[in-house]
Nucleic acid binder design. Structure first.
Length: 645
RNA sequence: GCCGUUGUAGCUCAGUGGUAGAGCACUUCCUUGGUAAGGAAGAGGUCGUGAGUUCAAUUCUCAUCAACGGCUCCA
């Protein structure tokens, strides 16, 4: 007999060799039907794994992350089975579960799959799932595994095998399909009741653009049709929030073929959001002891050679223009210009920390396929600043920057993000990263310590640092689930020396400052793209392009409405009058669709009482209010940058 | 940049080997209506661009540009 411990602390004894599936059955038939996979002492295993020692187990259903990922991974195997049945001779690479489904990478020998064929595969998968084939696990020697795939002529699996130690190799077979796989899997294919193959794409083998491109099929699957329907519904909701759609509907930005890809034109409504964000940044930075500067959009090649950016960055800079034998580049970053301002005057320790801020315009020649609405563009306005400080002040300054982030995020109600400590990769010193192993370790430790001290949750990621130092990135997700860095806070121990930046310390010696690069509001482009999705287009009052719409019920009240509108304008409120000869219902509808926060409706009653009827966007009638009262309320809400309640 | 898909009016989209249509938006007129669409008339497109096939191309073929879904990359 063995003792099995459950997550709730309960313990039961079972016969030696019992499987977790049988345990599930012993608890209830319902559970046995729902259970997908199990954890044994924290390791995810097949339900058929015999248990031969005392263990803690957790039975995972669809509701657990482990359940979902196993379910999707098994779905990927079913996809492969369908593909192999449809396109004999196909070779497979890997087919993992991902966040929202699964994919399988394959080499179809140059054949491309059409939409109809994708639908055909989906049908075939459903058919295979209905067969309810069991996933059979088999341990196999490396030699036998190699022989199997040599026979099949599958160089991809052979490549995979080359990296695996003998004795840990397993095959999984369901129906006619056998795959090299570590597992675990669902017990049988019949659990998969609903399948949607979502898209088909190219993907480089091993993620390296120098390698051959494989065909990747994405899909998602569910234990019931109802859940698939809900999933599709959710995707449609997400599309409504897409900043590209909202940006067009709300007149925020546009693109034009003659201007160029990745070069957004900010329309009047978008420009208001930009200006409000800049106002917030100016106020915040002024209070935090920053000084504002303005720098040109271009500079000579020599500066980027000095900074060291050119070799790392040239591919993503617009090509240089040459004048009288001198090359000029459009700036892709503001740092070197700011460094030149630092070195324009002799600096003493008394001048430090020196914090130079600029909403800097940068141009980056991103690859055409990388462009994505406002989130990835070629012309960007960065909420940039560089802090030059002595090493002993570093922690304090770095922490102050983090505090500024938190302050901003609170204003915008940003909660769904991940702080990522981005480190270097020692293997890439001298290539992707400045070759200063000790400085890397030292600064990485400093940053980590600041994060821990400030109690900020974060994840550490290798090989994501800037070339001149480690950084903290704030990661967010777009409506359609793509990940972006919203803001960044970087340490730079390299450029100070490259630019020969110096200050005189207390002992009258020259010293090189550490530099902090920071952009808590990222760029206008990405930040506003993010905010559009975050608010679903419903900006809080202080950010809303049009804050108030004055809606007279008929022409008879136009004069009074005009005077109300003028009083709002005089108070600095962005108000507009809708004096069209339309019915009030129509005016309200149009204003609701434009997501204007406040509507002031004016008819006979309001005119007589020198009042307005207030309607909040999305919330309906909020009753009458005197003009002076609504003026005070609006002004306060704007001044305090209140969020939507 | 690579793989795949798409490209018709300001927007959302029908449609066809014989030089184009709807709804919304726009203009004018009628309507003066109390919390999400009042009515009528009108204007608006060389069907992304260039070449080819054809008696004839918006429709078929190729190239190119752009957007979209991914890969790579990134604020």
């Amino acid at each position: 007999m063995i003792n099995i411990k459950f997550p709730d602390g309960a313990e039961r004894s079972y016969e030696n060799g019992i499987s977790p599936l049988e345990i599930a059955k012993s608890i209830s038939e319902g559970l046995a039907r729902k259970v997908i996979v199990t954890s044994v002492d924290g390791v995810v295993r097949d339900l058929s794994t015999p248990l031969v020692t005392d263990a803690s187990i957790k039975l995972h259903t669809w509701d657990d992350a482990e359940g979902k990922s196993t379910f999707w991974h098994s779905s990927a195997h079913i996809l492969a089975e369908a593909v192999e049945a449809t396109f004999p001779g196909v070779k497979f690479w890997v087919g993992p579960a991902i966040d929202k489904g699964f994919y399988y990478d394959m080499d179809l020998g140059g054949k491309s799959i059409s939409e109809e064929e994708l639908l055909g595969l989906e049908k075939k998968m459903a058919e295979l799932a209905r067969k309810n084939n069991v996933f059979i696990r088999k341990e196999i020697s490396k030699a036998d595994a190699i022989a199997y795939f040599e026979e099949k002529g599958d160089e991809y699996k052979l490549d995979l095998l080359a990296g695996l130690p003998d004795g840990e190799i397993t095959f999984y077979t369901q129906g006619e399909f056998t795959d090299l796989c570590r597992g675990p899997h669902i017990p049988q294919t019949g659990l998969v009741k609903a399948i949607k193959l979502t898209s088909i794409a190219g993907a480089y083998w091993k993620g390296d653009e120098k390698n051959k491109q494989l065909t990747r099929i994405y899909g998602v699957s569910f234990p019931s049709q109802k859940e698939l329907d809900e999933h599709i519904q959710m995707l449609e909701e997400a599309k409504k929030r897409d900043h590209r759609k909202l940006g067009k509907e709300l007149g925020i930005f546009t693109f034009d073929d003659d201007v160029g890809p990745g070069l957004p034109l900010w329309m009047p409504n978008g420009t208001i959001v930009i200006e409000e964000l800049e106002r917030l940044a100016k106020e915040t930075e002024q209070a935090a002891g920053y000084k504002r500067v303005v720098t040109p959009h271009i500079a000579k090649e020599s500066m980027y050679l000095t900074s060291g950016h050119l070799p790392y960055y040239q591919d993503s800079m617009y090509p240089p223009m040459e004048l009288e034998g001198v090359k000029y580049y459009l700036k892709a970053m503001n740092c070197p210009h700011h460094h030149k301002i630092f070195s324009a005057e002799s600096r003493s320790y008394k001048d430090l920390p020196l914090r130079l801020a600029e909403y800097g315009t940068c141009y980056r020649y991103e690859q055409s396929g990388e462009l994505f609405g406002l989130m990835r563009v070629r012309c960007l306005h960065m909420n940039d600043a560089h802090i030059y400080c002595a090493k002993e002040d570093f922690a304090k300054e770095f922490r102050a920057v983090n505090d500024m982030y938190i302050k901003y995020f609170k204003i915008f109600g940003i909660e769904k993000y991940v702080m990522r400590l981005s480190l270097h990769d020692p293997a890439k010193l001298g290539q992707k990263y400045i070759n200063e192993p000790e400085l890397w370790q030292e600064t990485e430790a400093m940053v980590r310590e600041v994060l821990i001290e400030s109690n900020i949750p974060f994840v550490e990621v290798q090989d994501e640092g800037a070339f001149y130092g480690p950084k903290i990135d704030v990661q967010i997700w777009s409506a359609i689930g793509r990940e972006f860095t919203l803001a960044t806070n970087q340490v730079d121990f390299a450029q100070g020396r490259r630019f020969n930046l110096q200050y005189t310390n207390k002992e009258n010696h020259a010293e090189t400052p550490l530099i902090i690069h920071r952009a808590p509001l990222g760029t206008h482009e990405r930040f506003i793209g993010f905010l559009l999705e975050h608010y679903a287009g419903k900006f809080p009052l202080w950010l809303a392009p049009v804050q108030v719409k004055v809606l007279p019920i008929s022409d008879k009240f136009n004069d009074y409405a005009e005077s109300v509108n003028q009083q709002l304008l005089n108070a600095g409120i962005r108000s507009e009058l809708d004096d069209r000869a339309e019915k009030i219902g129509k005016k309200i509808r149009d204003t609701e669709l434009m997501k204007v926060p406040y509507m002031l409706i004016i008819g006979e009653k309001e005119q007589t009482e020198n009042a307005v009827s207030v309607r909040r966007q999305g919330k309906g009638d909020a009753g009458m209010s005197s003009v002076s009262e609504i003026l005070t309320n609006l002004t306060t809400e704007i001044r305090d940058r209140q969020s939507n309640s």
